[in-house]
């Protein structure tokens, strides 16, 4: 819960709600850019961010993102987070 996972912002999906699509280890997930929205949102497209429970909490560089992902894979946390994302998507559909 506390480790977060790096993702790359691919597109702004909802300007008003500060939402964007992120690529997280090949999985697409909508995230909130609110915590890092210090300037125009469009400037964040292409940036790497550290994502905690769906919120981009810090902008990081590509090298830091790669190292962090590797460390998370070592801890088994990357897989766990991706499963939680899938679980979250499923929860929206369940009746």
């Amino acid at each position: 819960m506390c480790l977060g996972i790096p993702g790359q912002i691919v597109a702004i999906t909802d300007e008003a709600r500060q939402m964007a699509m992120a690529d997280v280890s090949g999985v697409r997930r909508e995230v909130s850019l609110a915590p890092v929205a210090l300037g125009p949102l469009a400037d964040l497209v292409g940036a790497w961010v550290l994502i905690h429970v769906g919120f981009a909490m810090a902008v990081i560089d590509a090298e830091e993102a790669a190292a962090t992902l590797e460390a998370l894979r070592g801890l088994g946390e990357a897989q766990e987070t991706l499963e939680q994302m899938a679980e979250g998507a499923k929860a929206l559909e369940d009746q």
Binding site: M1, C2, V31, G54, T81, G88, A89, A91, L92
Partner: peptide, 27 residues
């Protein structure tokens, strides 16, 4: 329901106006 983010809970609330969606804020 297990969610990844409180954003998922918000979305559930939008989609289920007849239900009360509670998010367990933890951490």
């Amino acid at each position: 329901r297990m969610v990844y983010s409180p954003l998922d809970a918000l979305e559930l609330a939008r989609r289920n106006p007849g239900k009360e969606v509670v998010f367990f804020g933890l951490g």
